[in-house]
Design a protein around this nucleic acid. Structure first.
Length: 271
DNA sequence: GAACAATGACCAA
DNA sequence: TGGTCCTTGTTCC
């Protein structure tokens, strides 16, 4: 789940559920005990998200933000009403009388100062979901790089928030071979990719899932049986290795690149 | 009950 | 490039 859209959605959800009133904070698992104690009884007064980094702002002297990075399998679980006894390894639980949220398995969950937060922003690239960002800074890196577009899109210093699903899907939708070097990309191609990411990821925040298949290519529109899909959204190539491309029927390929699965259609995506 | 996979990122060499 | 960390759910004996 955790690509940029998840994080921005979590920021909004936390503010909606917990904003403006004191929360009870605890670390049932124990690994965030000191932090949870500092937050307990405080008021959530601001949230922010940049790429895959989530920031929850509390009125806590000297520890302005909780910085959370979900990593590969971190997860938040929200619930209504009084929180039940925690199940499993809950790093952080936020709660009030009407709702609770449990955080499990994050790579990072720490208290940081405003300066610490600024430093994190400084090493993150443009985020398609931040209204103040555009793709220009990323283009400056990409247009000079011999690295593959596939690797550049996953580099959080270049583009923040894109993960393995959006990478595969945006390259498919724009007909770009993943192995193409950044410097062999046209400016128009990059602008189309960026605009596509903005649209797809905003929809991802709204729906809380990744859907990338255009209406004309849905299984229904193509007269194919609806596909059973195990990651929660409708996609062209992600985790579809060996299956027929939804557009041309060619077998979708999978290869490992920098220890991550890369999926693409060798016919639709041109170098 | 073990083995494995997973939408991530860090570090060392 | 390889090893490590974080946790849960699924799959396979």
């Amino acid at each position: 789940m955790p690509e940029g859209h998840t994080i921005h959605r979590l920021a909004a959800d936390h503010l909606a559920v917990f904003g403006g009133r004191p929360v009870r904070a605890s670390s049932p698992q124990g690994r965030f005990d000191a932090g949870a104690r500092a937050l307990d009884g405080r008021v959530l007064d601001g949230v922010d998200a940049h790429g895959k980094h989530l920031f929850l702002g509390f009125d806590t002297p000297g520890a302005d933000w909780v910085h959370i990075h979900l990593g590969l399998y971190g997860k938040f679980g929200f619930g209504e009403g009084t929180a039940p006894a925690p199940v499993g390894a809950v790093r952080l639980r936020l709660a009030h009388d009407d709702a609770y949220a449990d955080l499990r398995g994050p790579t990072a969950c720490e208290l940081i100062t405003q300066e610490g937060k600024d430093a994190l922003h400084a090493r993150l690239g443009c985020d398609p979901l931040r209204d103040s960002d555009d793709g220009e800074k990323a283009w400056g890196r990409i247009r000079l790089s011999r690295t593959s577009v596939a690797a550049l899109l996953m580099d959080q210093k270049v583009v923040a928030g894109v993960g393995n699903v959006y990478r595969a899907e945006v390259l498919f939708r724009n007909g770009i071979d993943p192995t193409r070097a950044g410097r062999d990309l046209d400016r128009e191609e990059w602008e189309a990719i960026w605009a596509d990411l903005v649209g797809l990821m905003k929809e991802g925040v709204r729906n809380n899932r990744i859907d990338t298949v255009r209406p004309e290519h849905t299984p229904e529109a193509m007269g194919r049986p609806p596909r059973v899909d195990d990651h929660g959204g409708e996609v062209y190539v992600y985790r579809r290795a060996g299956a027929a491309c939804l557009v041309c029927g060619t077998e979708v390929r999978r290869e490992e690149l920098a220890a991550r699965n890369l999926f693409w259609c060798p016919a639709c995506q041109k170098n």
